[in-house]
């Protein structure tokens, strides 16, 4: 399911009241590959978390298709994420003591009984697609950075999401691994109708995006 992102008059404030992010208008059509760049502390990640539904904005609207996640309860936002969003982080955030497949299929542990099988199958397929089939049963604690990030990719794909959100996905990788990951990210989105939004400092990543948005002082330069 592909969804267009519509953001209107979005304001996110820190707990003490300082404004972290202000987006007057942002439209991202389904299936786009979007890079977000800007100086540190400019609000890139905050933007990403806001459109992921990880935080509740002070005001304004974030909507994916007809789902206005900015107005949802935390429980409904969690449901939206587990059904529509795949997340990739800079330092992978894996459970070191679980196998590659155990990490990739982690959603099966809390998914409804009926969808568990599909999640595990998709996680396995993802690992295979990303060249980790042989390592699927091994604990990730022995994995290289590139392998770990690919396990995290497989995890992001296991629920067959319409949206992939990545926060500095290449920042902890060497150049070769980073290039391979960019290749994979790019291939798994766009043409498939899957939207990719990646916050990054990596020019190589942005070079593969359909569009790059600069964020400065909490405002995207659209």
């Amino acid at each position: 399911m592909s969804l267009d992102l519509v953001v209107r008059d979005l304001v996110v404030k820190a707990r003490e009241g300082r404004e972290l992010l202000s987006v007057e208008r942002l439209d991202i059509p389904a299936g786009s590959r979007i890079g977000i760049r800007g100086p540190s502390g400019a609000g890139k990640s905050t933007l990403l978390f806001a459109i992921a539904g990880l935080l509740r904005p002070s005001s304004g609207t974030v909507a994916w298709g007809d789902q206005r996640i900015s107005e949802m309860s935390p429980g409904d936002r969690a449901r939206f994420r587990r059904e529509n969003v795949g997340l990739v982080f800079q330092d992978f955030l894996l459970f070191e003591e679980l196998s590659a497949l155990g990490n990739a299929a982690i959603a099966a542990r809390y998914a409804s009984r009926s969808s568990r099988r599909a999640i595990i199958a998709a996680a396995g397929a993802g690992l295979e697609r990303l060249g980790l089939k042989k390592l699927g049963g091994r604990r990730v604690e022995s994995f290289s950075g590139g392998e770990r990030q690919r396990v995290a990719m497989a995890r992001a794909l296991a629920n067959d999401p319409g949206i992939i959100l990545a926060d500095e996905p290449t920042a902890s990788l060497d150049r070769t691994s980073a290039d391979r990951l960019i290749e994979d990210l790019s291939a798994l989105s766009g043409g498939s109708g899957r939207t990719l939004i990646a916050v990054s400092h990596d020019a190589a990543l942005h070079a593969r995006m359909d569009r790059v948005i600069d964020v400065v002082d909490g405002r995207p330069l659209v």
Partner: peptide, 16 residues
């Protein structure tokens, strides 16, 4: 805390 936050970010229900 980080692993638990990750689970919640991925969309795991609070009850889980």
């Amino acid at each position: 805390a980080r692993r638990l936050a990750l689970l919640r970010a991925l969309g795991a229900p609070d009850r889980f």
